[in-house]
């Protein structure tokens, strides 16, 4: 589609209808969406439902390994999956800035469509608004979704207990570094691509093997450091982790070294942290490693009693230090 977004595309008239038909329906089409209602009518569902929402404002919109479209699909799928649930449906809202090229919007919508089809989670409802030039940054996408939790699975960030094992599904920092490397004012080259990926199939395998998993979370903004602190705080425990068990690609380690970033706080979009009872840890690890998204999984540490809720790390050097919450932003707007 040629041209640019203008205010008429959000005005409710013919131009908006054309945008919906030629961009969104073409890219995302499925029976529920194709009914053309302001709501999606879905079948009855058995079991406990979970719901999640995630807004995406990443800059730049296209980065090595992905774009805001697939990120918006994966982000919400992963938030739902962290409850142990199978995601069922998504919906998406677009805030478009006047002047945004329609060809780029098409690319983003197609990327969303592909991500949604690959994940098997349809986008069943949507909305579009247009804001005046200067009042947005190209496109913002908000997605929300629902999923259903299998019988017998009950995870929460508040359920970690002293003695539990802490598992990480793979290498950290790729999304943060990939986005950083594509910023126009940072001229460094890197082969690193974002790890953006849906995790619900890995999670399905994990909860079916070890339904006793206590907590799962995906270390997006704030990275591994933030997620461990969140779980420690919510559960009222401490954590001890070992630096040289944390998988990291050499290119990510080098880039972080070069830029003065701590990879523990760099964002991920296709990784998860799981906490499980110690006796189940090895079996869970084996299960994760069979799955492509968990190939590099590791047991990185254990939950301990600590009233201060500190996350402590044995460093590569053999010293000990605390892994604190991140203060401020390490990288602005990465997801």
């Amino acid at each position: 589609m040629k041209g640019r977004v203008d205010l008429s595309h959000g005005g409710g008239g013919r131009a908006m209808q054309r945008l919906i038909d030629e961009v969104f329906r073409r890219a995302l089409g499925n029976p529920a969406l194709d009914e053309g209602n302001d709501f999606a009518s879905l079948g009855a569902v058995q079991g406990r439902l979970v719901m999640a929402t995630d807004s995406h404002v990443v800059s730049p919109l296209f980065f090595p390994g992905g774009d805001i479209g697939c990120l918006a699909v994966h982000g919400t799928i992963n938030d739902i999956a962290m409850s142990g649930a199978s995601p069922l449906y998504l919906c998406a809202s677009f805030i478009l800035e006047e002047g945004f090229p329609l060809s780029e919007l098409e690319r983003i919508a197609q990327s969303m469509g592909k991500a949604s089809r690959d994940a098997g989670v349809p986008i069943v409802a949507g909305d579009t608004k247009v804001v005046e030039k200067g009042k947005g940054d190209g496109v913002f996408i908000s997605t929300a979704g629902i999923g259903v939790v299998p019988e017998g699975v009950n995870t929460s960030g508040s359920m970690a207990r002293a003695g539990d094992a802490i598992l990480l599904s793979g290498t950290i920092g790729e999304h943060g570094v990939a986005v950083m490397s594509s910023r126009e004012n940072l001229s460094f080259g890197t082969p690193i691509v974002s790890d953006t990926a849906p995790l619900h199939r890995l999670v399905a395998a994990m909860v079916s093997a070890v339904p006793q998993i206590r907590a799962m979370r995906d270390p997006t903004r704030g990275g591994l450091g933030a997620v461990l602190n969140e779980i420690a705080m919510q559960s009222g425990v401490g954590m001890n982790i070992t630096e040289n068990r944390i998988p990291m690609r050499e290119e990510v380690a080098s880039a972080c070294e070069f830029l003065g970033l701590d990879p523990l706080y760099a964002a991920n979009e296709g990784k998860l942290v799981a906490v499980c009872p110690p006796e189940k840890a090895e079996f869970l690890l084996e299960t994760m490693r069979v799955h492509p998204q968990g190939r590099d999984a590791q047991i990185i540490g254990e939950v301990v009693e600590d009233k201060r809720h500190f996350v402590q790390m044995e460093t590569v050097l053999g010293g000990k230090r605390i892994v604190d919450w991140l203060s401020g932003e390490q990288l602005p707007r990465i997801c």
């Binding site: 701590d262 790390m313 044995e314 460093t315 590569v316 050097l317 053999g318 010293g319 000990k320 230090r321």
Partner: peptide, 9 residues
């Protein structure tokens, strides 16, 4: 010194 836990050594 802080990041690598050198004090503890």
């Amino acid at each position: 010194v802080s990041r690598h836990g050198i004090k503890s050594l």
